[in-house]
Design a protein around this nucleic acid. Structure first.
Lengths: 233, 233
DNA sequence: CTATCTTATCAAACATTGTTCGATAACCGA
DNA sequence: TCGGTTATCGAACAATGTTTGATAAGATAG
């Protein structure tokens, strides 16, 4: 049986990872092609090692995604902390929400794992704390503060997830521009029965060529206006 | 080679499906154990047929999920249409949002595929239209109406997805009650440094034993208040 | 220096998944 | 009876997350 077993390849060296490297490469894969691109084999290839090695650092793919999420959330958090300090706590809340929103737009995979993330700890917890601290400057009850902070996070994540859904491949390939894509939907809606779909006809012109960021800002503003009203300011 | 090939089993009859049956069983599987429970093999087993047969009705799992989502959305839509007609359009909006929210709470898998659903048509389109029609009764610009309807959907789906995330297995198994589960988080937060986490200490009592529905209603009310303000009513 | 334990790596196998292929039954109009 | 469309199904395929057992490399103790 000698020779059957694969003898130690002399030229081949053992790879040496680190948690930092694993997370960095994982995030890179996620950024390049989204969630399905992050496979253990692709990640192992990037790290120049074997597949099973990754399991020394994380116990499962879920944990890998949790850690990757927390990893990038660290950057978002420092960006947010550097921008607080306005006179108006509502202005601060707006800035924080926008910063988080922008981060999710750049990394659409964040939204999905922001929700699936039951562990309110680490940077996720700190982010929640930062937003909540602004509500401490408003004249609210503890319960209202609890609801306000949660509502703002929901608005950001909900809108970002809704708008950040992957466009169909023909848009990603660049064969069809975004405007053209929106135009196709607009065209379809214009063909609907005006009696049955008066609203779609009302907004189809607005939809065509709309900006996602404006849509988010408008929704955020509604929540902030309600909050300001509630605080009696 | 005669005999090698599996000869037609005489007692075994061919199964006969239908699109309706496929979707019904698919929804049943999703309801019982969420998204991962819906596999083509499990579905085929329920239908008493072969795996490949399902591919005559749907081209992929994505399409299966889209159709299943649209299927249950039909029921939500009729429930919503039966409840409109209040004097105050904002009251109607609230009822519609709550109805949709309740449907997602019962079926947490809906939230995920509500967002991934790029095809704004079918019942999804009708639902959007129903919500939008209420904004027609408010004194708003077309753009404001477009943003308002989108914001409400985002609030509902975002909050439902956030709150409807699957609790850990120990809660599902019933070995640990929900109150006990919340209590464990509360305990952890109480151990945080009060100087660094003043907000968490402020709301930990509210969090313990809170109701998800109340949390949603509070967030929704903020958006509706902002909307009412914008409409100048 | 040697022995031993811990840390870290890896190839290979395993189970499960979505999907495709080719065959073939069941029905139906001519 | 024939031919074509509709519908079903077993078997195989490729890709995935995960486990196993072996083993190298480094640190630590004797």
């Amino acid at each position: 049986m000698a020779g059957t077993r694969s003898r130690p390849p002399e030229g081949r060296r053992r790879a040496s990872h680190s948690m930092e490297a694993v997370l960095t490469e994982a995030v890179a894969l996620l950024d390049e092609a989204g969630e399905p691109a992050l496979t253990f084999r692709a990640l192992a290839g990037r790290l120049g090692g074997g597949v099973a090695s990754i399991y020394w650092y994380v116990a499962s793919k879920d944990e890998l995604l949790d850690r990757a999420t927390d990893h990038v959330l660290g950057g978002v958090l420092t960006a947010i902390e550097a921008q607080t300090g306005s006179e108006d706590p509502i202005d601060d809340l707006r800035v924080m929400a926008v910063t988080l929103f922008d981060a999710i737009v750049v990394r659409p995979w964040l939204a999905a794992y922001f929700m699936r993330n039951t562990d309110l700890q680490g940077n996720s917890l700190r982010l929640y704390e930062q937003i909540g601290q602004q509500t401490l400057r408003l004249d609210l009850t503890p319960r209202q503060r609890f609801h306000a902070a949660s509502a703002i996070i929901s608005v950001v994540v909900g809108t970002a997830a809704d708008l950040g859904q992957e466009p169909p491949p023909e848009v990603l390939d660049g064969t069809v521009g975004r405007d053209e894509y929106l135009g196709q939907w607009a065209e379809r809606w214009r063909g609907l029965d005006p009696g049955e779909f008066p609203f779609m006809h009302e907004i189809v012109d607005e939809f065509e060529g709309h900006d996602d960021k404006d849509q988010f800002l408008a929704g955020l503003e509604l929540t902030l206006a309600g909050l300001r009203l509630q605080a009696g300011a």
